[in-house]
Write a protein that binds this DNA or RNA. Structure first.
Length: 578
DNA sequence: GCCGTTTTCGGCCCGACTGTTTTCAGTCG
Protein backbone atom coordinates (compact mmCIF):
# COMPACT_ATOMS: atom_id res chain seq x y z
CA UNK A 1 0.00 0.00 0.00
CA UNK A 2 2.91 2.31 -0.77
CA UNK A 3 0.76 4.17 -3.28
CA UNK A 4 -0.96 6.14 -0.53
CA UNK A 5 2.37 7.35 0.80
CA UNK A 6 3.53 8.34 -2.65
CA UNK A 7 0.21 10.04 -3.36
CA UNK A 8 0.74 12.08 -0.22
CA UNK A 9 4.24 13.04 -1.34
CA UNK A 10 2.98 14.14 -4.74
CA UNK A 11 0.14 16.17 -3.22
CA UNK A 12 2.68 17.82 -0.94
CA UNK A 13 4.85 18.59 -3.98
CA UNK A 14 1.85 20.17 -5.69
CA UNK A 15 1.17 22.43 -2.69
CA UNK A 16 4.74 23.62 -2.45
CA UNK A 17 5.13 24.18 -6.19
CA UNK A 18 1.89 26.11 -6.30
CA UNK A 19 3.01 28.31 -3.42
CA UNK A 20 6.20 29.09 -5.29
CA UNK A 21 4.19 30.18 -8.32
CA UNK A 22 5.41 27.30 -10.45
CA UNK A 23 3.78 26.35 -13.76
CA UNK A 24 0.14 25.63 -12.84
CA UNK A 25 0.01 22.71 -15.25
CA UNK A 26 2.96 21.14 -13.55
CA UNK A 27 1.10 21.55 -10.26
CA UNK A 28 -1.92 19.93 -11.81
CA UNK A 29 0.16 17.03 -13.06
CA UNK A 30 1.28 16.27 -9.50
CA UNK A 31 -2.24 16.64 -8.13
CA UNK A 32 -3.68 14.36 -10.77
CA UNK A 33 -0.96 11.77 -10.22
CA UNK A 34 -1.62 11.87 -6.46
CA UNK A 35 -5.31 11.33 -7.01
CA UNK A 36 -4.76 8.50 -9.47
CA UNK A 37 -2.37 6.69 -7.14
CA UNK A 38 -4.77 7.13 -4.21
CA UNK A 39 -7.39 5.02 -5.96
CA UNK A 40 -5.16 2.70 -7.94
CA UNK A 41 -6.74 -0.75 -7.71
CA UNK A 42 -3.51 -2.67 -8.35
CA UNK A 43 -0.25 -3.15 -6.51
CA UNK A 44 2.13 -0.29 -7.28
CA UNK A 45 5.30 -2.09 -6.20
CA UNK A 46 4.48 -4.99 -8.50
CA UNK A 47 3.78 -2.58 -11.38
CA UNK A 48 7.15 -0.95 -10.76
CA UNK A 49 8.90 -4.31 -10.97
CA UNK A 50 7.10 -5.10 -14.22
CA UNK A 51 8.03 -1.67 -15.65
CA UNK A 52 4.37 -0.81 -16.02
CA UNK A 53 4.28 2.50 -14.17
CA UNK A 54 4.11 4.44 -17.44
CA UNK A 55 0.83 2.75 -18.28
CA UNK A 56 -0.86 4.57 -15.37
CA UNK A 57 -2.63 7.64 -16.77
CA UNK A 58 -0.89 10.83 -15.74
CA UNK A 59 2.38 9.06 -14.94
CA UNK A 60 5.11 9.91 -17.41
CA UNK A 61 8.85 9.56 -17.52
CA UNK A 62 9.55 11.87 -14.60
CA UNK A 63 6.86 10.74 -12.18
CA UNK A 64 7.57 7.08 -12.89
CA UNK A 65 11.14 7.75 -11.90
CA UNK A 66 10.02 9.53 -8.72
CA UNK A 67 7.82 6.55 -7.82
CA UNK A 68 10.80 4.25 -8.28
CA UNK A 69 12.89 6.59 -6.19
CA UNK A 70 10.38 6.54 -3.35
CA UNK A 71 9.98 2.76 -3.48
CA UNK A 72 13.74 2.34 -3.18
CA UNK A 73 14.75 5.15 -0.82
CA UNK A 74 11.53 5.97 1.02
CA UNK A 75 11.71 9.66 0.17
CA UNK A 76 11.83 12.10 -2.73
CA UNK A 77 14.90 14.28 -3.08
CA UNK A 78 12.94 16.90 -5.03
CA UNK A 79 10.36 17.20 -2.26
CA UNK A 80 13.01 17.44 0.44
CA UNK A 81 14.70 20.25 -1.52
CA UNK A 82 11.40 22.11 -1.86
CA UNK A 83 10.57 21.68 1.80
CA UNK A 84 13.86 23.35 2.67
CA UNK A 85 12.84 26.41 0.63
CA UNK A 86 9.21 26.79 1.71
CA UNK A 87 7.93 27.62 5.21
CA UNK A 88 6.59 24.42 6.79
CA UNK A 89 3.23 26.02 7.62
CA UNK A 90 2.31 26.42 3.94
CA UNK A 91 0.38 23.16 3.32
CA UNK A 92 -1.73 23.90 6.39
CA UNK A 93 -2.39 27.45 5.22
CA UNK A 94 -3.53 26.22 1.82
CA UNK A 95 -5.99 23.98 3.62
CA UNK A 96 -7.86 27.00 4.96
CA UNK A 97 -10.81 27.98 2.73
CA UNK A 98 -10.16 31.32 1.07
CA UNK A 99 -6.40 31.05 1.31
CA UNK A 100 -4.72 30.08 -1.94
CA UNK A 101 -1.09 30.27 -3.00
CA UNK A 102 -1.04 34.05 -3.46
CA UNK A 103 -2.53 34.83 -0.08
CA UNK A 104 -0.29 32.26 1.58
CA UNK A 105 2.72 33.90 -0.03
CA UNK A 106 1.81 37.34 1.29
CA UNK A 107 1.09 35.95 4.75
CA UNK A 108 4.35 34.04 5.09
CA UNK A 109 6.49 36.76 3.49
CA UNK A 110 5.15 39.64 5.55
CA UNK A 111 4.22 38.00 8.84
CA UNK A 112 6.83 35.24 9.12
CA UNK A 113 4.18 32.77 10.27
CA UNK A 114 5.36 29.58 11.96
CA UNK A 115 1.99 28.05 12.75
CA UNK A 116 -1.69 28.48 11.99
CA UNK A 117 -2.06 29.80 15.55
CA UNK A 118 0.29 32.66 14.58
CA UNK A 119 -2.13 33.50 11.78
CA UNK A 120 -5.10 33.54 14.16
CA UNK A 121 -3.20 35.77 16.58
CA UNK A 122 -2.19 38.17 13.81
CA UNK A 123 -5.76 38.35 12.56
CA UNK A 124 -7.12 39.07 16.03
CA UNK A 125 -4.49 41.81 16.45
CA UNK A 126 -5.72 43.29 13.12
CA UNK A 127 -2.27 42.97 11.58
CA UNK A 128 -3.68 41.39 8.43
CA UNK A 129 -5.58 44.41 7.16
CA UNK A 130 -2.33 46.33 6.87
CA UNK A 131 -1.00 43.86 4.29
CA UNK A 132 -1.14 44.69 0.56
CA UNK A 133 -4.39 43.58 -1.01
CA UNK A 134 -5.97 43.03 2.42
CA UNK A 135 -8.68 44.94 4.17
CA UNK A 136 -10.91 44.42 7.18
CA UNK A 137 -13.27 42.10 5.32
CA UNK A 138 -10.59 39.68 4.24
CA UNK A 139 -9.17 39.56 7.75
CA UNK A 140 -12.61 38.81 9.13
CA UNK A 141 -13.13 36.03 6.58
CA UNK A 142 -9.84 34.40 7.49
CA UNK A 143 -10.81 34.39 11.16
CA UNK A 144 -14.16 32.81 10.30
CA UNK A 145 -12.48 30.22 8.09
CA UNK A 146 -10.04 29.36 10.87
CA UNK A 147 -12.91 28.75 13.29
CA UNK A 148 -14.60 26.58 10.68
CA UNK A 149 -11.49 24.51 10.08
CA UNK A 150 -11.02 23.97 13.81
CA UNK A 151 -14.55 22.82 14.55
CA UNK A 152 -15.61 21.02 11.43
CA UNK A 153 -12.56 19.74 9.64
CA UNK A 154 -13.88 16.21 9.53
CA UNK A 155 -16.26 15.15 6.82
CA UNK A 156 -19.75 13.79 7.33
CA UNK A 157 -20.38 10.08 7.26
CA UNK A 158 -22.19 8.90 4.18
CA UNK A 159 -25.46 8.08 5.94
CA UNK A 160 -25.73 11.50 7.56
CA UNK A 161 -25.10 13.07 4.17
CA UNK A 162 -27.59 10.77 2.44
CA UNK A 163 -30.38 11.61 4.91
CA UNK A 164 -29.69 15.35 4.76
CA UNK A 165 -29.63 15.12 0.96
CA UNK A 166 -33.08 13.53 0.98
CA UNK A 167 -34.38 16.28 3.29
CA UNK A 168 -32.95 19.01 1.09
CA UNK A 169 -34.34 17.70 -2.18
CA UNK A 170 -37.71 17.09 -0.57
CA UNK A 171 -37.78 20.69 0.66
CA UNK A 172 -36.61 22.07 -2.69
CA UNK A 173 -39.24 20.11 -4.59
CA UNK A 174 -41.86 22.13 -2.75
CA UNK A 175 -40.38 25.55 -3.47
CA UNK A 176 -42.58 27.37 -6.03
CA UNK A 177 -41.02 27.50 -9.48
CA UNK A 178 -38.69 24.53 -8.93
CA UNK A 179 -39.25 21.92 -11.63
CA UNK A 180 -36.45 19.43 -10.92
CA UNK A 181 -33.95 18.72 -8.16
CA UNK A 182 -31.05 16.40 -7.57
CA UNK A 183 -28.22 15.68 -5.21
CA UNK A 184 -24.86 16.20 -6.89
CA UNK A 185 -21.22 16.17 -5.83
CA UNK A 186 -19.44 13.49 -3.84
CA UNK A 187 -22.69 12.26 -2.26
CA UNK A 188 -24.11 11.39 -5.67
CA UNK A 189 -20.84 9.65 -6.44
CA UNK A 190 -21.12 7.81 -3.09
CA UNK A 191 -17.70 8.65 -1.78
CA UNK A 192 -17.05 7.21 1.67
CA UNK A 193 -17.42 10.55 3.41
CA UNK A 194 -18.89 13.84 2.27
CA UNK A 195 -17.49 17.32 2.89
CA UNK A 196 -19.97 19.81 1.48
CA UNK A 197 -23.36 18.75 0.27
CA UNK A 198 -24.09 19.81 -3.32
CA UNK A 199 -27.69 20.23 -4.39
CA UNK A 200 -29.08 21.27 -7.73
CA UNK A 201 -32.45 22.66 -8.79
CA UNK A 202 -34.02 23.76 -12.06
CA UNK A 203 -36.20 26.87 -12.13
CA UNK A 204 -37.00 29.64 -14.60
CA UNK A 205 -36.22 32.29 -12.01
CA UNK A 206 -33.19 31.01 -10.06
CA UNK A 207 -32.82 34.13 -7.91
CA UNK A 208 -36.17 33.52 -6.25
CA UNK A 209 -35.17 30.00 -5.25
CA UNK A 210 -31.86 31.24 -3.87
CA UNK A 211 -33.75 33.84 -1.85
CA UNK A 212 -36.02 31.18 -0.35
CA UNK A 213 -33.02 28.99 0.42
CA UNK A 214 -30.98 31.64 2.18
CA UNK A 215 -33.88 32.31 4.53
CA UNK A 216 -34.76 28.61 4.99
CA UNK A 217 -34.17 26.54 8.13
CA UNK A 218 -31.16 24.99 6.37
CA UNK A 219 -29.34 28.32 6.31
CA UNK A 220 -27.90 28.72 9.78
CA UNK A 221 -25.29 31.03 8.30
CA UNK A 222 -24.92 32.30 4.73
CA UNK A 223 -21.38 32.08 3.40
CA UNK A 224 -22.10 33.40 -0.08
CA UNK A 225 -25.18 34.01 -2.18
CA UNK A 226 -25.55 35.32 -5.71
CA UNK A 227 -28.19 35.07 -8.40
CA UNK A 228 -27.73 31.39 -9.17
CA UNK A 229 -25.82 29.86 -6.29
CA UNK A 230 -25.59 29.99 -2.52
CA UNK A 231 -23.45 28.38 0.15
CA UNK A 232 -24.79 28.06 3.67
CA UNK A 233 -23.84 26.34 6.89
CA UNK A 234 -26.75 24.42 8.40
CA UNK A 235 -27.47 24.74 12.12
CA UNK A 236 -25.78 21.31 12.46
CA UNK A 237 -22.63 22.77 10.94
CA UNK A 238 -22.81 21.20 7.48
CA UNK A 239 -21.97 23.27 4.42
CA UNK A 240 -24.60 23.04 1.69
CA UNK A 241 -24.02 24.47 -1.79
CA UNK A 242 -27.15 25.05 -3.82
CA UNK A 243 -27.05 25.82 -7.50
CA UNK A 244 -30.14 26.79 -9.49
CA UNK A 245 -30.20 26.69 -13.28
CA UNK A 246 -32.73 27.03 -16.07
CA UNK A 247 -34.53 23.78 -17.00
CA UNK A 248 -32.79 23.59 -20.39
CA UNK A 249 -29.45 23.47 -18.57
CA UNK A 250 -30.36 21.02 -15.82
CA UNK A 251 -28.58 18.02 -17.36
CA UNK A 252 -25.41 19.98 -18.03
CA UNK A 253 -25.40 21.41 -14.53
CA UNK A 254 -26.03 18.00 -12.99
CA UNK A 255 -23.16 16.53 -14.96
CA UNK A 256 -20.93 19.41 -13.99
CA UNK A 257 -21.74 19.50 -10.27
CA UNK A 258 -21.58 15.76 -9.85
CA UNK A 259 -17.91 15.76 -10.82
CA UNK A 260 -15.50 14.49 -10.01
CA UNK A 261 -13.40 17.44 -10.93
CA UNK A 262 -10.89 15.12 -12.58
CA UNK A 263 -13.59 13.38 -14.60
CA UNK A 264 -14.92 16.74 -15.79
CA UNK A 265 -11.49 18.02 -16.77
CA UNK A 266 -10.93 14.92 -18.87
CA UNK A 267 -14.37 15.22 -20.42
CA UNK A 268 -13.83 18.86 -21.34
CA UNK A 269 -10.44 18.13 -22.81
CA UNK A 270 -12.05 15.51 -24.96
CA UNK A 271 -14.82 17.93 -25.93
CA UNK A 272 -12.38 20.60 -27.05
CA UNK A 273 -10.62 18.06 -29.27
CA UNK A 274 -13.99 17.54 -30.93
CA UNK A 275 -14.55 21.26 -31.44
CA UNK A 276 -17.01 21.40 -28.55
CA UNK A 277 -17.18 23.32 -25.31
CA UNK A 278 -18.87 22.06 -22.14
CA UNK A 279 -19.94 24.27 -19.28
CA UNK A 280 -22.71 23.99 -16.71
CA UNK A 281 -25.21 25.37 -19.21
CA UNK A 282 -24.71 22.88 -21.98
CA UNK A 283 -22.53 21.55 -24.75
CA UNK A 284 -21.74 24.15 -27.41
CA UNK A 285 -20.11 24.09 -30.83
CA UNK A 286 -17.05 26.30 -30.54
CA UNK A 287 -17.34 27.66 -34.09
CA UNK A 288 -20.99 28.60 -34.11
CA UNK A 289 -21.68 28.91 -30.39
CA UNK A 290 -24.71 26.73 -30.95
CA UNK A 291 -25.95 24.71 -27.99
CA UNK A 292 -26.33 21.05 -28.89
CA UNK A 293 -27.15 19.53 -25.47
CA UNK A 294 -28.04 20.53 -21.92
CA UNK A 295 -31.46 19.43 -20.73
CA UNK A 296 -30.62 15.82 -19.87
CA UNK A 297 -27.39 14.52 -18.40
CA UNK A 298 -27.21 11.64 -20.87
CA UNK A 299 -27.31 14.15 -23.75
CA UNK A 300 -24.05 15.71 -22.54
CA UNK A 301 -22.24 12.41 -22.94
CA UNK A 302 -24.10 11.59 -26.12
CA UNK A 303 -22.93 14.84 -27.70
CA UNK A 304 -19.38 13.57 -27.25
CA UNK A 305 -20.25 10.16 -28.67
CA UNK A 306 -20.24 8.50 -25.25
CA UNK A 307 -22.84 6.53 -23.33
CA UNK A 308 -24.14 7.92 -20.03
CA UNK A 309 -22.09 6.63 -17.16
CA UNK A 310 -23.09 6.16 -13.55
CA UNK A 311 -21.98 8.91 -11.15
CA UNK A 312 -20.18 6.33 -8.99
CA UNK A 313 -17.77 5.66 -11.86
CA UNK A 314 -16.81 9.28 -12.49
CA UNK A 315 -13.43 9.38 -10.82
CA UNK A 316 -11.19 9.42 -13.90
CA UNK A 317 -10.16 5.89 -13.09
CA UNK A 318 -10.71 4.36 -16.50
CA UNK A 319 -14.42 5.04 -17.00
CA UNK A 320 -13.96 7.35 -19.99
CA UNK A 321 -11.84 4.83 -21.85
CA UNK A 322 -14.29 2.05 -20.96
CA UNK A 323 -17.18 4.20 -22.19
CA UNK A 324 -15.42 4.94 -25.47
CA UNK A 325 -14.67 1.24 -25.91
CA UNK A 326 -18.21 0.25 -25.01
CA UNK A 327 -17.00 -1.87 -22.09
CA UNK A 328 -18.66 -0.09 -19.16
CA UNK A 329 -19.89 -2.62 -16.58
CA UNK A 330 -23.61 -3.17 -16.06
CA UNK A 331 -23.51 -2.03 -12.45
CA UNK A 332 -25.41 -3.66 -9.64
CA UNK A 333 -28.57 -1.83 -8.65
CA UNK A 334 -30.77 -1.79 -5.53
CA UNK A 335 -33.40 -3.80 -7.36
CA UNK A 336 -30.87 -6.62 -7.89
CA UNK A 337 -30.46 -7.10 -4.13
CA UNK A 338 -32.32 -10.14 -2.86
CA UNK A 339 -31.18 -10.19 0.72
CA UNK A 340 -28.95 -9.03 3.55
CA UNK A 341 -26.60 -11.31 5.45
CA UNK A 342 -25.13 -9.64 8.47
CA UNK A 343 -27.92 -8.48 10.75
CA UNK A 344 -28.06 -8.41 14.57
CA UNK A 345 -31.02 -8.46 16.97
CA UNK A 346 -31.26 -7.73 20.67
CA UNK A 347 -30.24 -11.32 21.34
CA UNK A 348 -26.69 -10.00 21.05
CA UNK A 349 -25.94 -6.28 20.65
CA UNK A 350 -28.76 -5.16 18.33
CA UNK A 351 -31.66 -2.95 19.42
CA UNK A 352 -34.68 -4.63 17.87
CA UNK A 353 -36.20 -8.05 18.49
CA UNK A 354 -36.03 -11.13 16.33
CA UNK A 355 -39.60 -10.55 15.16
CA UNK A 356 -39.04 -6.89 14.27
CA UNK A 357 -35.88 -7.57 12.31
CA UNK A 358 -37.34 -10.58 10.55
CA UNK A 359 -40.34 -8.54 9.45
CA UNK A 360 -38.18 -5.56 8.45
CA UNK A 361 -36.25 -7.77 6.03
CA UNK A 362 -39.48 -8.82 4.39
CA UNK A 363 -40.59 -5.19 4.16
CA UNK A 364 -37.37 -4.43 2.30
CA UNK A 365 -38.68 -6.79 -0.35
CA UNK A 366 -35.95 -9.35 0.24
CA UNK A 367 -36.12 -13.06 -0.54
CA UNK A 368 -33.92 -13.92 2.43
CA UNK A 369 -32.24 -12.45 5.49
CA UNK A 370 -29.39 -13.99 7.48
CA UNK A 371 -29.61 -13.19 11.19
CA UNK A 372 -26.08 -13.28 12.53
CA UNK A 373 -25.50 -12.71 16.23
CA UNK A 374 -22.10 -12.49 17.81
CA UNK A 375 -20.29 -15.57 19.14
CA UNK A 376 -19.54 -16.13 22.86
CA UNK A 377 -16.05 -14.66 23.14
CA UNK A 378 -17.41 -11.23 22.25
CA UNK A 379 -18.80 -10.84 25.77
CA UNK A 380 -19.29 -7.11 25.44
CA UNK A 381 -21.79 -7.76 22.64
CA UNK A 382 -23.61 -10.50 24.58
CA UNK A 383 -22.40 -13.19 22.17
CA UNK A 384 -24.56 -16.31 21.99
CA UNK A 385 -23.57 -19.46 23.87
CA UNK A 386 -24.22 -22.71 22.02
CA UNK A 387 -27.53 -23.34 23.86
CA UNK A 388 -28.72 -19.81 23.06
CA UNK A 389 -27.66 -20.29 19.43
CA UNK A 390 -29.75 -23.51 19.32
CA UNK A 391 -32.78 -21.61 20.63
CA UNK A 392 -32.25 -19.21 17.75
CA UNK A 393 -32.12 -22.08 15.25
CA UNK A 394 -35.45 -23.31 16.54
CA UNK A 395 -37.01 -19.87 16.27
CA UNK A 396 -35.84 -19.60 12.68
CA UNK A 397 -37.23 -23.03 11.85
CA UNK A 398 -40.58 -22.01 13.32
CA UNK A 399 -40.55 -18.72 11.38
CA UNK A 400 -39.69 -20.41 8.08
CA UNK A 401 -42.44 -22.97 8.61
CA UNK A 402 -44.88 -20.05 8.36
CA UNK A 403 -43.13 -18.20 5.52
CA UNK A 404 -42.86 -19.36 1.93
CA UNK A 405 -41.53 -16.63 -0.34
CA UNK A 406 -39.27 -15.07 2.28
CA UNK A 407 -36.79 -17.08 4.34
CA UNK A 408 -34.60 -16.45 7.33
CA UNK A 409 -31.12 -17.94 7.20
CA UNK A 410 -29.60 -19.26 10.41
CA UNK A 411 -26.34 -17.41 10.69
CA UNK A 412 -23.73 -16.19 13.10
CA UNK A 413 -20.97 -13.63 13.13
CA UNK A 414 -18.26 -15.82 14.52
CA UNK A 415 -15.06 -14.43 15.95
CA UNK A 416 -11.82 -15.43 14.32
CA UNK A 417 -9.81 -15.94 17.49
CA UNK A 418 -6.26 -14.73 17.99
CA UNK A 419 -4.87 -18.12 16.92
CA UNK A 420 -7.04 -18.31 13.80
CA UNK A 421 -9.56 -20.80 15.24
CA UNK A 422 -13.28 -20.09 15.00
CA UNK A 423 -15.25 -19.25 18.14
CA UNK A 424 -17.69 -22.18 17.66
CA UNK A 425 -16.59 -25.75 16.97
CA UNK A 426 -17.09 -27.02 13.41
CA UNK A 427 -19.88 -29.32 14.59
CA UNK A 428 -21.88 -26.24 15.61
CA UNK A 429 -20.96 -24.24 12.50
CA UNK A 430 -22.26 -27.16 10.44
CA UNK A 431 -25.75 -26.52 11.82
CA UNK A 432 -25.78 -22.99 10.41
CA UNK A 433 -26.80 -21.80 6.95
CA UNK A 434 -24.45 -18.83 6.82
CA UNK A 435 -21.28 -17.94 8.72
CA UNK A 436 -19.65 -14.52 8.84
CA UNK A 437 -16.09 -14.85 10.13
CA UNK A 438 -14.87 -11.61 11.71
CA UNK A 439 -11.84 -10.34 13.58
CA UNK A 440 -12.80 -8.41 16.71
CA UNK A 441 -9.59 -8.71 18.71
CA UNK A 442 -5.84 -8.54 18.28
CA UNK A 443 -6.02 -5.65 15.79
CA UNK A 444 -2.42 -4.72 16.43
CA UNK A 445 -0.94 -8.10 15.59
CA UNK A 446 1.77 -8.02 12.94
CA UNK A 447 0.80 -8.43 9.28
CA UNK A 448 1.91 -12.05 9.03
CA UNK A 449 -0.19 -13.10 12.00
CA UNK A 450 -3.38 -11.31 10.93
CA UNK A 451 -2.99 -12.73 7.43
CA UNK A 452 -2.56 -16.21 8.91
CA UNK A 453 -5.74 -15.83 10.97
CA UNK A 454 -7.76 -14.72 7.96
CA UNK A 455 -6.40 -17.53 5.81
CA UNK A 456 -7.15 -20.11 8.53
CA UNK A 457 -10.73 -18.80 8.75
CA UNK A 458 -11.20 -18.96 4.98
CA UNK A 459 -9.96 -22.54 4.97
CA UNK A 460 -12.74 -23.48 7.38
CA UNK A 461 -15.40 -25.05 5.13
CA UNK A 462 -18.26 -23.43 7.07
CA UNK A 463 -17.08 -19.82 6.82
CA UNK A 464 -19.19 -18.23 4.10
CA UNK A 465 -17.81 -14.71 4.15
CA UNK A 466 -15.18 -12.67 5.97
CA UNK A 467 -16.84 -9.76 7.78
CA UNK A 468 -15.41 -6.22 7.61
CA UNK A 469 -12.17 -7.64 6.19
CA UNK A 470 -9.80 -4.78 7.03
CA UNK A 471 -11.26 -3.84 10.44
CA UNK A 472 -11.01 -0.12 9.87
CA UNK A 473 -13.36 2.37 11.52
CA UNK A 474 -13.51 5.64 9.62
CA UNK A 475 -11.72 8.37 11.52
CA UNK A 476 -11.23 6.09 14.53
CA UNK A 477 -9.20 3.03 13.76
CA UNK A 478 -6.88 2.26 10.87
CA UNK A 479 -7.18 -1.04 8.99
CA UNK A 480 -5.15 -3.81 10.51
CA UNK A 481 -2.00 -4.89 8.72
CA UNK A 482 -2.57 -7.70 6.25
CA UNK A 483 -1.21 -9.10 3.03
CA UNK A 484 -4.02 -8.11 0.68
CA UNK A 485 -2.79 -10.17 -2.27
CA UNK A 486 -2.54 -13.32 -0.13
CA UNK A 487 -6.01 -12.78 1.33
CA UNK A 488 -7.56 -12.26 -2.11
CA UNK A 489 -5.89 -15.36 -3.47
CA UNK A 490 -7.13 -17.47 -0.57
CA UNK A 491 -10.65 -16.11 -0.90
CA UNK A 492 -10.66 -17.09 -4.55
CA UNK A 493 -9.12 -20.52 -3.96
CA UNK A 494 -11.40 -21.48 -1.05
CA UNK A 495 -14.61 -19.99 -2.47
CA UNK A 496 -15.01 -17.60 0.45
CA UNK A 497 -16.70 -14.28 -0.19
CA UNK A 498 -15.52 -10.97 1.22
CA UNK A 499 -17.90 -8.55 2.84
CA UNK A 500 -18.56 -5.05 1.68
CA UNK A 501 -19.79 -3.85 5.05
CA UNK A 502 -22.20 -0.99 4.40
CA UNK A 503 -22.30 0.50 7.90
CA UNK A 504 -21.23 4.13 7.37
CA UNK A 505 -18.49 4.01 10.00
CA UNK A 506 -16.97 0.93 8.33
CA UNK A 507 -17.51 0.80 4.55
CA UNK A 508 -15.13 -2.13 4.56
CA UNK A 509 -13.92 -3.33 2.06
CA UNK A 510 -13.17 0.01 0.50
CA UNK A 511 -14.23 0.62 -3.09
CA UNK A 512 -10.69 0.25 -4.46
CA UNK A 513 -10.09 -2.98 -2.59
CA UNK A 514 -13.42 -4.37 -3.70
CA UNK A 515 -12.53 -3.51 -7.28
CA UNK A 516 -9.24 -5.31 -6.78
CA UNK A 517 -11.09 -8.31 -5.31
CA UNK A 518 -13.39 -8.43 -8.30
CA UNK A 519 -10.42 -8.37 -10.65
CA UNK A 520 -8.96 -11.27 -8.66
CA UNK A 521 -12.16 -13.25 -9.22
CA UNK A 522 -13.34 -13.05 -5.61
CA UNK A 523 -17.05 -13.10 -4.74
CA UNK A 524 -18.38 -10.24 -2.61
CA UNK A 525 -21.37 -9.70 -0.36
CA UNK A 526 -22.90 -6.36 0.63
CA UNK A 527 -24.01 -6.46 4.27
CA UNK A 528 -25.49 -3.72 6.40
CA UNK A 529 -24.27 -5.07 9.77
CA UNK A 530 -27.59 -3.67 11.02
CA UNK A 531 -28.14 -3.25 14.74
CA UNK A 532 -31.66 -1.84 14.28
CA UNK A 533 -34.33 -2.04 11.62
CA UNK A 534 -33.57 1.46 10.29
CA UNK A 535 -30.01 0.40 9.57
CA UNK A 536 -31.22 -2.04 6.93
CA UNK A 537 -31.35 1.20 4.90
CA UNK A 538 -27.54 1.16 4.78
CA UNK A 539 -27.97 -1.20 1.84
CA UNK A 540 -28.33 1.89 -0.36
CA UNK A 541 -24.86 2.97 0.71
CA UNK A 542 -23.46 -0.51 0.22
CA UNK A 543 -24.83 -0.72 -3.29
CA UNK A 544 -23.40 2.71 -4.08
CA UNK A 545 -20.02 1.64 -2.78
CA UNK A 546 -20.21 -1.58 -4.81
CA UNK A 547 -20.98 0.45 -7.92
CA UNK A 548 -17.87 2.52 -7.25
CA UNK A 549 -15.99 -0.78 -7.27
CA UNK A 550 -17.42 -1.51 -10.75
CA UNK A 551 -19.34 -4.50 -9.35
CA UNK A 552 -22.08 -6.20 -11.33
CA UNK A 553 -24.84 -8.37 -9.94
CA UNK A 554 -22.85 -11.47 -10.90
CA UNK A 555 -20.10 -10.40 -8.47
CA UNK A 556 -22.39 -10.39 -5.44
CA UNK A 557 -23.85 -13.14 -3.26
CA UNK A 558 -26.84 -10.92 -2.43
CA UNK A 559 -27.99 -11.00 -6.03
CA UNK A 560 -28.32 -14.78 -6.14
CA UNK A 561 -31.62 -16.54 -5.79
CA UNK A 562 -31.87 -18.53 -2.58
CA UNK A 563 -31.36 -21.71 -4.55
CA UNK A 564 -28.17 -20.53 -6.21
CA UNK A 565 -26.93 -19.10 -2.93
CA UNK A 566 -27.42 -22.43 -1.18
CA UNK A 567 -25.61 -24.23 -3.96
CA UNK A 568 -22.77 -21.75 -3.75
CA UNK A 569 -22.39 -22.21 0.01
CA UNK A 570 -22.61 -25.99 -0.19
CA UNK A 571 -20.00 -26.18 -2.91
CA UNK A 572 -17.35 -24.96 -0.47
CA UNK A 573 -18.53 -27.37 2.22
CA UNK A 574 -18.53 -30.30 -0.17
CA UNK A 575 -15.17 -29.42 -1.63
CA UNK A 576 -13.71 -29.57 1.88
CA UNK A 577 -15.20 -32.98 2.64
CA UNK A 578 -13.87 -34.67 -0.49
C1' DG B 1 4.80 17.41 -15.89
C1' DC B 2 1.80 14.98 -19.30
C1' DC B 3 0.39 13.99 -23.83
C1' DG B 4 -1.06 13.32 -29.01
C1' DT B 5 -7.78 13.16 -34.65
C1' DT B 6 -3.50 20.64 -33.62
C1' DT B 7 1.55 13.69 -32.19
C1' DT B 8 7.65 15.21 -29.80
C1' DC B 9 6.19 20.96 -29.10
C1' DG B 10 2.74 23.68 -27.46
C1' DG B 11 -1.03 23.29 -25.57
C1' DC B 12 -3.36 22.02 -21.03
C1' DC B 13 -11.69 23.12 -18.51
C1' DC B 14 -14.64 26.73 -17.28
C1' DG B 15 -17.56 29.93 -14.84
C1' DA B 16 -19.50 32.11 -10.23
C1' DC B 17 -18.67 34.84 -6.36
C1' DT B 18 -15.93 37.90 -3.36
C1' DG B 19 -13.20 41.64 -2.20
C1' DT B 20 -10.67 45.19 -3.50
C1' DT B 21 -10.72 46.62 -7.56
C1' DT B 22 -12.53 51.11 -11.52
C1' DT B 23 -11.68 46.33 -14.95
C1' DC B 24 -9.80 42.37 -12.22
C1' DA B 25 -7.20 38.85 -9.45
C1' DG B 26 -7.81 35.21 -6.36
C1' DT B 27 -10.19 31.29 -4.93
C1' DC B 28 -13.29 27.64 -5.34
C1' DG B 29 -15.62 23.72 -7.16
Amino acid sequence: MKQHEIAEQFAHMADLLEYRGDNPFRVRAYRRAAQTLEQLPGDLAAMAVEQKLRSIPGIGEDLAQKIQEYLVTGSLAALERLKAQVPPVVPELLNIPGIGPKTAKVLTDKLRLKTVEDLAAAARAHKLQKLPGFQAKKEENILKALALVQQGQERMDLWTAWCLGQELTTWLDQVPGVTRTSIAGSLRRMRETVGDLDVLAAAKQPARVIERFRTSPFAGRVLAAGGTKASVITPQGVQVDLRVVAPESFGAALQYFTGSKEHNVRLREQASRQGLKINEYGVFQVKTGKRIAGREEADIYKALGLPWMAPELREDSGELDAAAAGTLPKLVDMKDIRGDFHVHTNASDGRDTFEVMARAGKEQGYDYLALCEHSPSLRIANGLSVPRLRERLNAIKAFNARSKSYRLLAGAEVDILADGKMDYPDSVLAELDFVVGSIHSGFTQPEAQITKRLIAAMRNPYVTIIGHPTGRLLGQRPPYAMDVAAVLKEAKDTGTALEMNAAPQRLDLTDTMARQARQAGVMLAICTDSHSKEQLGYMTLGVGRARRAWLQSSDLLNCMTLKRLTTWINRKRQRAST
